[in-house]
């Protein structure tokens, strides 16, 4: 079933790119058109493979089965992903020195990664180490504080 979904997604992506490339000059569109054609061909091949495989499976329901991960894993994963996106946004608006400890503390506490004092220590060390090496020494132009 996943193979079918992947093939469909590939066809959609190929069509989107192909459509966009239609507006480009001939030379610029050459390779994208070629690649998207190949992608569509391969996707159709994958669909055919999946259909042939399904012929062998007599139990109708198991054909469409998708191995979904358990709810706890989905929940944990989504929370962490949300934190990551928040952190990326926060670095540029609130500044590195506030966003990084916030991210580390929140994700480590929520995941209950280890003892609280180790969490605090880790967040402090990582934030400080990167600050010393990258911002201080190498002068990386990353915003440190909230933009007033």
């Amino acid at each position: 079933m996943t193979r079918l979904l992947v093939a469909l997604a590939a066809i959609i992506i190929a069509l989107i790119f192909r459509n966009e490339a239609a507006g480009y000059p001939r030379v610029a569109a050459q390779l994208p058109k070629l690649i998207t054609s190949v992608m569509i061909g391969l996707a159709l091949l994958a669909i055919v493979q999946q259909l042939l495989a399904w012929r062998q499976v007599t139990d109708g329901a198991s054909r469409y089965a998708l191995t979904m991960p358990s709810w706890p894993r989905i929940r944990d994963g989504s929370v962490f992903v949300a934190l990551i996106i928040l952190y990326a946004w926060a670095i540029t608006s609130i500044g590195y020195l506030i966003a990084t400890p916030a991210f580390l503390l929140s994700s480590l506490f929520i995941a209950r990664a280890t003892k609280p004092w180790i969490i605090l220590l880790t967040a402090a060390i990582v934030t400080l180490a990167i600050w010393v090496i990258f911002v201080n020494f190498l002068r990386l132009p990353i915003p440190l504080f909230p933009r007033i």
């Binding site: 952190y87 670095i91 990167i130 990258f134 990386l140 990353i142």
Partner: peptide, 18 residues
């Protein structure tokens, strides 16, 4: 592992920016 994960993210973001 639960400690390594977030640290990887921090380093990846800084590393990508740099």
């Amino acid at each position: 592992n639960r400690v390594v994960g977030p640290v990887i993210i921090v380093l990846s973001i800084i590393g990508a920016f740099a």
